[in-house]
């Protein structure tokens, strides 16, 4: 089995998950649907990468998991942002913005 080419995207996926969970606690399916709708399918992120990232972020204590009931009354694992995760989101977002602005400055004609 080969490893999917997600290494480049890893940081991106992480920050997207953190941002998504900053709205409200969500289960994994909710996160995947939310990102799919938000990016309007532009970013083709496999759900596999999302789940891997969520378990990784849980270990890093940036998000925490609890079992709860879903909208259709099924047991589902809900993820929510921890204080540490919120701090991390602020940092990552700032980095992204700086990065994007720098790229734009190069790309945009003066």
């Amino acid at each position: 089995m080969t490893k999917p080419p997600i290494d480049l995207l890893q940081g991106t996926v992480d920050v997207l998950i953190l941002r998504t969970l900053a709205w409200e606690p969500m289960h994994g399916y909710g996160v995947s649907r939310f990102i799919r709708q938000r990016t309007e399918g532009v970013l083709a992120i496999e759900s596999a990468a999302l789940y891997q990232a969520m378990h990784r972020l849980e270990r890093k204590k940036w998000i925490r998991a609890e079992w709860g009931l879903s909208e259709n009354n099924r047991r589902a694992k809900y993820y929510s942002l921890t204080a540490e995760g919120r701090k991390q989101l602020r940092q990552e977002a700032a980095t992204w913005r700086t990065y994007a602005e720098a790229v734009f400055k190069v790309l945009e004609p003066v």
Binding site: M1, A49, Y51
Partner: peptide, 23 residues
């Protein structure tokens, strides 16, 4: 199909979970 590699994901997540449990 669209999910991606299910088996790899399972292994990856389990490893992460075990590690966080130890920590």
């Amino acid at each position: 199909r669209e999910f991606g590699d299910v088996e790899y994901t399972k292994r990856y997540c389990l490893a992460e979970d075990a590690m966080s449990r130890r920590e």
